[in-house]
Design a protein around this nucleic acid. Structure first.
Lengths: 147, 147
DNA sequence: TTTGACCTGTGAGTTGGTCACAGGTTTTAC
DNA sequence: GTAAAACCTGTGACCAACTCACAGGTCAAA
């Protein structure tokens, strides 16, 4: 298979295939006649796996590691499960943060839905943002640097 | 105020102050003696505004626009409200997507919590990812390009 | 045979910062 | 008085995960 064929089969951009190849996630052979990359069914499986893992929140280095271990006939699965569980925590935190944000946005919108557009005091909204005290900022600001 | 003083007052990294200055969000004057940037209380207000707007999901170009309009004594607020409402839609979509993701992750974890680590069939997890059919993929894959 | 669609590698752009570097200035300490 | 530390300056690289652009080579169909 050539780049575009693989890309089409996996439903991704051909540039993504090239990118993953550059990144070492795919290791195609070469057609010596024309120097084209040659992908096989195994590459398609790897690519599909990579895409699904991406959707589940794995990073490319993680995916590369998983694939490399699988190539070595090690079972990558305990490691996968670890990363997976860590990801779940992150995802749940992200959900909570976004829900906080949503609540704040809705209350801000409500607060300023009451006044028409051309209100002489049109700057109210900006003041609303300006003086809006972030309830998620525990005691102070986030620490500027953390190791 | 010098860079670090402003940064400290706003609780941000000094490099962020320099970055925002480069980006035109802050317009300090110069101390002709030493060529240092000089920020005033107004810059602190702008910076605080910018940080809060960032937390609410505004992009830097949007913030720059809002500040520029405010400088021109136009009320930026109707525009702000528009952007704000659009952001709310995006945030809600992101929440829904993350919740979908979370559900899938939890069911995947549940499916493989049943088997111990050293299972001979340790590749199950990877197959689980591999053969996991994305329920959020409506009929096909996401469109590769959209204007 | 020519046109168009594909292939190649490399390099830049995206976002919102953060960090590194090299050199100038100011403050603090002895 | 002077030396070191802490600050300032601008510029440019780096992060993730692609995406796009470019210039030149290859190949299939009309």
């Amino acid at each position: 298979m050539k780049v575009k064929e693989l890309a089409t089969a996996a439903g991704v951009n051909p540039d993504t295939v090239r990118f993953y190849t550059r990144e070492g996630l795919l290791q195609p052979t070469r057609n010596p006649d024309n120097n084209y990359q040659q992908y096989d069914a195994e590459d398609l499986r790897r690519l599909r796996f990579a895409r699904k893992a991406r959707q589940l929140g794995f990073s490319l280095p993680e995916i590369r590691q998983i694939l490399a271990r699988a190539d070595d006939h090690h079972s990558p699965c305990p490691m996968v499960r670890d990363v997976f569980q860590q990801r779940l925590v992150v995802v749940e935190r992200e959900i909570a943060e976004l829900q906080q944000l949503r609540k704040r946005m809705i209350s801000a919108l409500a607060a300023w839905q009451e006044m028409p557009d051309g209100t002489p005091d049109g700057h109210t909204i900006c003041r609303l943002i300006e003086h809006w005290d972030d309830p998620s900022a525990e005691s102070c600001c986030e620490e500027p640097k953390h190791e």
